[in-house]
Amino acid sequence: MSTHHIQVKVNGAVKAAEVESRLLLVHFLRESLNLTGTHIGCDTTSCGACTVLWNGRAVKSCTLFAVQADGAELRTVEGLAQDGKLHPIQVGFHEKHGLQCGFCTPGMMMASVALLEANPKPTEDEIRWGLSGNLCRCTGYVNIVKAVQQAAEQMQG
């Protein structure tokens, strides 16, 4: 068993820790840093409930080791709102009823943020394709698409 000293920037704050090499990034976030907004829904890199931004890319944090994140910049759902002001994607999910049980929501929003940062004016099909790594069991996706569309408009200003 090997342990490693890592330092990561999470939602703008530098965090240092000693981690076992096998510690999954999602467990590091949830259990070491108490950032429990990032969820776990499967064992097979299928559901996307654990999606975070890793150096700006949306990735599934259950399929990365924490040690791999040494030196990385991470964003989680807890870092979306800035100075008490909600991110447009959070507003969109709320106003368009893009969530029900809320369990897939953080991952879904993080994937949406990455999608909109790469493609500020996505079509509906591009949104659906871009979110196809994230599973939702409650909403039937219609209102998630609307939430992303509203956020896109809002982010355009």
Binding site: T36, T38, H39, E78, A81, H94
Partner: peptide
């Protein structure tokens, strides 16, 4: 929805 306030901030309180 009232409950959204916590869910969209990652502040839901799920069992795990």
């Amino acid at each position: 929805r009232v409950e959204d306030a916590r869910f969209i901030r990652g502040k839901g309180n799920y069992i795990d």
